[in-house]
Design a protein around this nucleic acid. Sequence first.
DNA 1: TGACAACGATTCGCAACACGAACTAATTTG
DNA 2: CAAATTAGTTCGTGTTGCGAATCGTTGTCA
Lengths: 146, 146
Amino acid sequence: MSENAQETRIADALIQVTRLVERVFAEVGRHCELTPQQAQLLCLLTDGPIGMTDLSRLLNLEKSSLTGLVDRVERRGLVARHRDTCDRRAWHVALTEEGQRAGAETHDLVNARLEALAEDLPASDRDQVAAALVHLLAAHRRTTAD
Amino acid sequence: MSENAQETRIADALIQVTRLVERVFAEVGRHCELTPQQAQLLCLLTDGPIGMTDLSRLLNLEKSSLTGLVDRVERRGLVARHRDTCDRRAWHVALTEEGQRAGAETHDLVNARLEALAEDLPASDRDQVAAALVHLLAAHRRTTAD
DNA sequence: TGACAACGATTCGCAACACGAACTAATTTG
DNA sequence: CAAATTAGTTCGTGTTGCGAATCGTTGTCA
């Protein structure tokens, strides 16, 4: 197969995989009574509190959009904003106790669903796919590093 | 590495790749003066006219959401609805001449961007990644076939 | 040391987008 | 031929997104 056809296959596959992952977030979110975007936010926050600037970068959102998203989730009692101790401009967003439960459940269900997809792949393939995707992501970061 | 750690790596990688692909659609869409969702729609339509039911399935949207999306793009003169010849309930959505230009440009730019990500991978890896992703997608379709 | 630039986050206006119930018209089924 | 189902729309409601403008705070520089 020519190199161009190989690459087109990857592009198509990546797009379809993206739709699949989005669907997983939508379905798991529905189960946990979260919108897909709320589910993504809570999953990220299971790693610990983080600033708005970092969150907006991770979620590819304008800060104003993130403000609204955090407002809605805060209103539900799932997250809380805490002042940064060193920089009074900054806030950290953290999960509340209830948010930790919801975030853990969401994170576990999403991972379980995505892992189930990979179950059919031989272990050697999985490792290679993961390594290749990580490599692809790293390459992208290098080309877009500020 | 344990099998579970392998699978978690795949889950994380798939999520990050999804964000990357979404970003590509957002950036290419901005360039083409389309919203990300409009860009996705036009890309799908470059394959030819399709019914609303099939489109909503491909885009993971409720039919009512698709009605609005198609309305907005139709209003811009990029698509047109055509009556199905066999089933008077059904409509097919097709690109207009202008829509074909926009759709082709969007499709080519998205593919170019995604292909550029894969350039760093050795050809043998690309082929294996594409094959593995296609396999993963096919397995998913088998488990969810109606 | 003070002026200015930059940063972190919010507010505001606007439009896109999403779901799901209810509906209409058309087709399929028994 | 009536009932069930399908294709797509309307409607109400809420979420989500961008970008300009704004405010308070921090960092930089002459």
